[in-house]
Design a protein around this nucleic acid. Structure first.
Lengths: 239, 239
DNA sequence: CGCTGCTTTGAAGCCCTTCAAACCAGGTGG
DNA sequence: CCACCTGGTTTGAAGGGCTTCAAAGCAGCG
């Protein structure tokens, strides 16, 4: 059940075996949600944080007009709302994009961890600051990259993140999002995302069809959108 | 020296007096930087975090083309790179917009705090998750708001944040940025920012001249850009 | 086999950019 | 004290990227 998490954490030497054990013992039994379910609602007082075990989810900000901005995409192994431990309520909702399996950690247990497990605390803290680093890269895409580069950059990011949990290789990855989801991530309309996907496909840079992203040449794609994975902090680290 | 910080922290009941004392004892002696100085460079290994005591600073992401995206604006009382404690290096640079006075906290001391001061640790963690919440709101502006709303929304946010440290009131606040800085925050060109500022001024919603933002009617401006300060987590909280 | 929801395509238009030049304020030196 | 210089602001004209609106195409599913 926590294999993914373990792989992800150990890959970066984020957690020791012992710490991993401590953390996994705090996990409640898995719960599932259907695609489209909003499993955390903006503003609601929370007393637990949720680890995504399987499926794709996102953090959505809704505007009064009904428009949406997806502020983050989450994949298996992500602690989708660990930040609710310190914030107590969220400024956005969490939406299941596909069918999702999750496990909850009570905030009380996280609090105990901050009292007794400083190294684990720092690792969890790191996880939230990494989320913030991704937010900043998305701000950069939204503010300064063309629609083509935004799409390409998102695919590059997802390839790296998914490969950390064994869900992507050099040829591509399963990516069960609608074009509307991409549009909401990238600050575009679904219509324009569709046109951009055609251009990228025609240019043989990347294709997104049948719920799958195919990348004929990773290096070429990363060069095209100036993707630099530094913001994902992949290096191993001592703590 | 740490009055601002104290005001900010105590206002939200983030820190107790004792914790405040602990934290202020970790601060090195103040250092100043000239306007335009890049006092933390992207990618450089860091062993301290910096508290902004006076002046305006920002987190800038630079693209290979030379374009810039400002990912965050910082005001007196902000821990501009507290996240470098967990990240060890940054994915962006920190730039002094005006002349700045700062104080450093060695990461070693922060590490000790995580070992011995869980409540303070949670407060510091909160501070980084609040930064992330602001990043998300900026993503929303960049992705889904018009240029007019983006400018207005930024002014609303800065008014609230500055008022927490006594640097703004209902009539406005000192805001010593160039139009180019606004453009780099909002994903626009300086030329367009200029035109938008004229429109907002003509509409009597807000004016930005002589390094000062004047807001004739705060409620009207907040309504115009659908500003909801929930993402700034202003409420008092027990921990 | 028809319904539903997503994708694709077209045409028109607007928001914002680009390029260029004028304007203006503050600081410096003759 | 004015002339000049520099950097930021303002304005105009033209163009392009993305949106909007609308409809057709298409896949999955009851």
């Amino acid at each position: 059940m926590t294999e993914l998490l373990q792989r992800k954490m150990s890959q970066r030497a984020i957690l020791s075996q012992d710490e991993m054990t401590v953390l996994s013992e705090t996990l409640g039994s898995p719960i599932t949600f259907d695609a489209g379910a909003m499993f955390i609602k903006e503003g609601v007082e929370l007393d637990q944080s949720i680890l995504l075990l399987d499926g794709f989810a996102c953090r959505v900000k809704e505007l009064p007009s009904g428009e949406r901005q997806i502020a983050a995409l989450h994949i298996p192994g992500d602690f989708v709302d660990l930040h609710s431990f310190t914030l107590k309520r969220l400024d956005h909702s969490i939406l299941a994009i596909t069918h999702c399996k999750v496990a909850a950690v009570p905030h009380e247990r996280l609090r105990e961890i901050t009292e007794t497990q400083p190294a684990l605390t720092r690792a969890l803290w790191f996880s939230t600051t990494l989320d913030a680093a991704i937010h900043r890269e998305w701000e950069t895409s939204l503010g300064r990259r063309s629609a083509q580069q935004r799409v390409a950059h998102l695919f590059c990011e997802m390839r790296v993140r998914l490969s950390l949990v064994g869900l992507a290789d050099d040829t591509g990855f399963a990516f069960p999002l609608l074009q509307q989801h991409l549009a909401d991530c990238l600050g575009l309309t679904a219509v324009h995302v569709n046109r951009v996907l055609r251009q990228l496909r025609d240019a043989k840079l990347v294709s997104f069809q049948f719920r799958r992203v195919r990348i004929p040449d990773v290096v070429a794609l990363e060069k095209y959108c100036e993707f630099d994975p530094a913001y994902l902090y992949l290096e191993r680290r001592d703590r």
